[in-house]
Amino acid sequence: MALNTDKNSYTVIFSAVMVVVVGSILAFLASVLRPTIQENERFAKQQNILYAMGVNENGDDTGGVHFIPTDRVEKEFASFIKEQLVIENGKATQDAEAYLIDIKKELAAKKKGESYKLPLFIGEKDSKDFYIIPMYGKGLWDAIWGFIALDDTMTIQGVYFDHKGETAGLGANIKMRYFMDDFTGETILKGTKYEGVAVSKGNNDPLNKIKDDNEVDALSGATITGNGVAAMIKESIDLYKDYLETIRVK
């Protein structure tokens, strides 16, 4: 018997069955893969935090971004990050799982006027302290985020940027070495004000030799992503300003 696929009842049943089948397949897949995906995300976060404070495998390669491999990252993270703090209502407490805090959710809570937690990581390398702050902001198409490592004079020691959907070849280049490396050595202070670092066009300093101008050279064709990066740095520093003021060497 040929199937009469034109009947309304058939259409309804077909859609119902299809929704259930597809839904089950995806739900099953998601629950099977979730632990692996979460583990990957956890490692990636550790890699990014370590990358910002200069713990990476870049070596002699001046062009590429090389993280600590995932099989070693947990150990390295434990040895380089000596303290993880959570700042809540202006009070900093230690929390070994602070790096798992989802900064996006915390910022959303802040916006709604609820209480929020801010994670901060203190790393030590070659007996020097690094204060690593997570950042979250928006680029042209979607979210951008990253980490910024400061020393006690508020000079940037390293940054890491990432993005969800910036344009390949343009805004996506914020995660390239040549862009990220420019931030190293820049100060976020202007006098005693927390100024951040602007991503500016035509600053006549493409090689970024001037380190105290609160500016790095922009990416051509990626104005909005660049402005997003600058705004993200400024906003994140504003959030942590009170804490940073307590550690700053005056």
Partner: peptide, 21 residues
Amino acid sequence: VIIVDQVLKAYAYELSKTLGA
């Protein structure tokens, strides 16, 4: 597309980040 995305995220995380959007 969702299956590809999820499988890459679980077993080729680096690649999945490059593919992203």
